[in-house]
Simulated scan of single mutants.
Amino acid sequence: MNRRRKFLLASVLALQNSSFIYPSCQKCFSRIILVSKRSNCPKCGFTGKAENANYRYRLSLKVAESNRLFGITVFGSCLDAFFGLTATGLHRILKTSMDKVQVPATSYSSAPTTKEKLKH
């Protein structure tokens, strides 16, 4: 990985991946694996409770500068200001919102047929 910092004035063409937050290791910031109620980092071996997982931003973009196309990825807390909160905070909001979504109790297979509708 190139450690030199470069500034690029470009136009964003597309979001490369719709998954822009990920559960991260508290030690090495790598993606962790969440299994049941535990988390495990395959890179450094750190384990913990899944409910205590921290999240980080990972924004992969396709951008254009002049007549050149680039694929860039921006990681970490530098995106906190852009989103207005930390990735962990955003994950909590998204999780709370998804918990409030209600799934209909009836399925399409239990819907009345045309004949049943005509009987009534």
Rank of each mutant, 00 (worst) to 15 (best):
L13I: 09
K6D: 12
S36L: 06
L94T: 05
M98N: 11
R5V: 15
K27M: 05
N40S: 11
G76L: 08
R56Q: 10
S107N: 07
A53N: 07
L13F: 01
L59S: 05
Y55L: 04
F29H: 14
Y22G: 14
P42R: 05
L8T: 03
D99H: 00
T86N: 13
D99K: 00
L9M: 06
Y55S: 11
K62P: 03
N52M: 09
K6E: 15
D80R: 09
G71M: 05
T96V: 03
L118Y: 10
Y55F: 13
K27L: 10
L94E: 14
K49G: 15
A50H: 07
L90Y: 02
R68Y: 07
K37V: 04
V63T: 04
L59N: 05
S77L: 01
N40F: 10
V63S: 05
R38H: 05
T73S: 12
V12Y: 07
A50M: 07
C78N: 11
K95Y: 05
T96D: 15
E65W: 01
R58I: 14
K43E: 11
Y55C: 09
R3S: 10
L8K: 02
R31G: 09
F82W: 07
L90P: 09
I33V: 12
T47N: 11
S36I: 01
R5W: 12
G48Q: 10
M1C: 04
R31C: 11
A81E: 14
K43G: 04
L79W: 04
A50T: 10
T86W: 00
I93A: 04
S39V: 01
K62E: 13
G71T: 08
V101E: 10
F75R: 08
G89S: 10
L118F: 12
F7L: 07
T96K: 05
S19F: 00
N2Q: 08
F46I: 06
I21P: 13
N54T: 06
V63F: 08
R5E: 15
Y57N: 03
N17M: 01
F29L: 12
R31E: 14
L13M: 10
V101F: 02
K62S: 15
